[in-house]
């Protein structure tokens, strides 16, 4: 099981702050793919060059293996102030 958290504007555009994936994907890239298939907006915002991902609070690339119980967070680029 993987817990997925969305940060910053991802919460609004995806209308989702967190979700749970029951069957653990093999890699972070597989998880991205799974999430991108949820719809056009998900695909637009969660591609590997569009949002950074962290596994258990450490930035990770798509090759990183996921383990049961991992927390995965997605963070988009934002600017403002």
């Amino acid at each position: 099981m993987i817990k997925v958290l969305f940060f910053a504007q991802l919460r609004e555009v995806l209308n989702c702050s967190n979700l749970t994936i029951e069957s653990t994907p093999e890699t972070l890239g597989d998880l991205r793919q799974l999430l991108c298939e949820k719809g056009d907006t998900w695909d637009e915002w969660l591609g590997s060059d569009k949002a950074l991902a962290a596994v258990n609070q450490t930035m990770a690339d798509d090759d990183v293996k996921l383990n049961d119980g991992n927390d995965v967070a997605f963070f988009p680029p934002v600017t403002g102030g």
Binding site: W45, D49, V78, T79, G81
Partner: peptide
């Protein structure tokens, strides 16, 4: 973190 200027983004304005 973000190699190139993003395609998708919001700004506070």
């Amino acid at each position: 973190l973000f190699p190139n200027v993003p395609e998708q983004a919001q700004s506070c304005s």
